[in-house]
């Protein structure tokens, strides 16, 4: 049970975050809506990566491997947004 309990707790948290993002979409529009929905999605992704993909028990090398792609993606999206937002 020691192994299973955190897995189920994370599942409950993920469902709660899904409820939160649907709820927020009914109330927010525009940039606040985008920021909140991406923030919640990132939190869900972090929970899945940390507990389900077991990065919490891996060493630094594996964590860098996993986070590297996310970092490259942020560079891509960051420069793209910079372009469109400063025209």
């Amino acid at each position: 049970m020691k192994v299973v309990a955190p897995l189920i707790a994370v599942w409950a948290a993920l469902l709660a975050l899904l409820g939160l993002t649907v709820g927020a979409s009914l109330m927010l529009t525009g940039t606040p809506s985008l920021v909140v929905s991406l923030g919640i999605a990132s939190a869900k992704a972090a929970l899945i990566a940390w507990v389900y993909m077991q990065l919490r028990r891996e060493g630094g090398l594996m964590r860098i491997m996993a986070l590297g792609a996310a970092f490259w993606l942020l560079i891509l999206l960051g420069y793209l947004a910079l372009d469109y937002l400063t025209r």
Partner: peptide, 23 residues
């Protein structure tokens, strides 16, 4: 295989608000 499946899940976690919840 689990890692692959979790990533497919994570991709959907982002696709859902980006496609369905634009307000």
């Amino acid at each position: 295989v689990g890692l692959y499946w979790h990533l497919v899940d994570v991709i959907w976690v982002f696709l859902y608000p980006i496609l369905y919840l634009v307000r």
